[in-house]
Simulated scan of single mutants.
Amino acid sequence: MTPKKLVLCLLGSFLITQAHAAAPDLAERWATLRAEQPKLQVRDAARALGASEAQLLATNIGKGVTRLQADGNQPREIMRAALDLGVVQAITRNENGVIETTGTASKFKQAGDKSEQGETKQKDPEQEARERNIAGGYLGGQIDLRFHFENWKYAFAVVQPGRDGKLTRSLQFFDAQGDSVHKVYLRNDAGVAVFEQIVAKFRLPEQSGELAVRAAPPKTQEKPDSQIDLKEFQLAWKDMTDVHQFARILREFHLTREQALRLAPAGLVERVTPQALRTLLEGAARDKVAIMVFLGNDGLTQIYSGKIEKTMEAGGFFNVLDPDFNLHIRDSALRSGWVVKRGGVTSVEFFDNDGVQVLSFFGVRERGKAQPQAWQDLADKLPRAK
């Protein structure tokens, strides 16, 4: 062997050794941090360790963690298969909020299914549009999800003891940065066989813990207000007949969401204090006002619809702690809140210190009908910002 080849061989052996040493090093540091701070959120732990949540999870591959296929349509197919799990807990989070709902996901009937009267049921246009990016269900019902599968990158099945020592089973999904997109926890014994079938069917042949996570792309800079056609934008806002048209208007005028609220037509948007979040949740619980809560990330938005009961501050978060619905908001990170009127609907939206939407609220209403007056009264009473 020539000296040059010998050097290359030794260098290759060194790099391989270093690669194998990296994972145990992260695993050891993760174990130490958990022992020191057992209540630390996984997302915060990952940041403290200079890693991602997906990389922390991958340190346990082969020890209750199985890596699943996540290319192409595989995440959609896994979620489609998960419709048969029965009662589950669906968990979605972003940087400053977590939403957790327990229930059974709904399934869509196949096109052409007949109603009890023997006639084909007519789908409304909104539902048809959403079905183009769904997994055979999850629209409405107890587990209500809106998918953006193009941002799903990694998938795992996890069978490990929970904090109470009992064995838990979950499907966990992450984006290209290794941040959590969605988690599905099994909450019934009857679904164990289905869970095991999902793991067997979608198990990745090569169970590698090496994840090629990418840095987050740079945040899109706001277009200067002076370059916005303000008159046309405000006319488009006033012409909205459906709240779902708002996303198209943002794209058309190249606006960020918070910027659009700031430039909205007079009288249709009012700024409220970040503390209005607590006022809203406490008021909804006290007055039994049914609300819709939207919380998500670039890969998925989860929606809860219904009344809430128990609210409280704990662990640096303001929380809703009901049997089948939990909400956790780091409200110290909120920068602004807004009461917004568009398309005949009133919403309340909150943004963090980076201008990213954390969550939004609507009043529960029947399609084609006005929002209940109780919701409008609640929004009107929120403390306005000076």
Rank of each mutant, 00 (worst) to 15 (best):
R203D: 05
E100L: 08
K201N: 12
L167G: 02
I308T: 03
V88R: 02
R169D: 02
G283N: 08
F350T: 00
G140N: 11
R76Q: 13
V272K: 01
V87H: 04
A276Q: 04
A190H: 07
F362Q: 02
F174G: 02
A157E: 00
Q69N: 14
I228M: 03
D354W: 03
P3W: 13
D287T: 10
F318R: 00
A247V: 14
Q259A: 05
L295A: 01
V356I: 15
T120G: 07
T104I: 14
L40H: 03
F173E: 03
I329E: 00
R169G: 02
T66K: 00
A385R: 03
D287A: 09
A200I: 07
N60A: 14
L40T: 04
I308F: 06
T168Q: 14
N133D: 12
F195K: 01
G62W: 06
N96W: 12
A284I: 03
S170D: 04
G344Q: 06
L255H: 05
E232L: 13
E258R: 05
K183Y: 10
Q37S: 14
P383E: 03
A260H: 08
R146N: 14
T241A: 13
A212P: 10
S336H: 04
L56G: 02
N73R: 08
E100R: 01
T102R: 08
V358M: 06
T102F: 10
G72S: 09
V158S: 04
E77P: 07
A21I: 05
M1S: 09
K381C: 12
G72V: 05
G337Q: 02
E100Y: 00
G86H: 07
D354E: 14
V184G: 01
F233V: 03
G363A: 08
V293L: 06
L40Y: 08
R132W: 08
Y138F: 13
A266E: 15
F318I: 06
E28W: 12
W375K: 00
P383T: 07
M240N: 00
A22R: 07
D242M: 05
V345N: 01
R132G: 09
E258S: 03
R365V: 06
S208F: 10
R29E: 02
A48P: 11
Y138W: 06
G296K: 02
G162T: 05
Q259S: 02
S226V: 10
L204Q: 12
A374W: 07
G299H: 05
R248F: 09
K307Y: 12
S305N: 11
A276I: 04
A46V: 04
D84H: 15
P75R: 00
I16T: 11
G368Y: 04
F246A: 06
A155F: 12
F246I: 12
H244E: 14
Q207S: 04
L186F: 02
R365Q: 06
A193E: 15
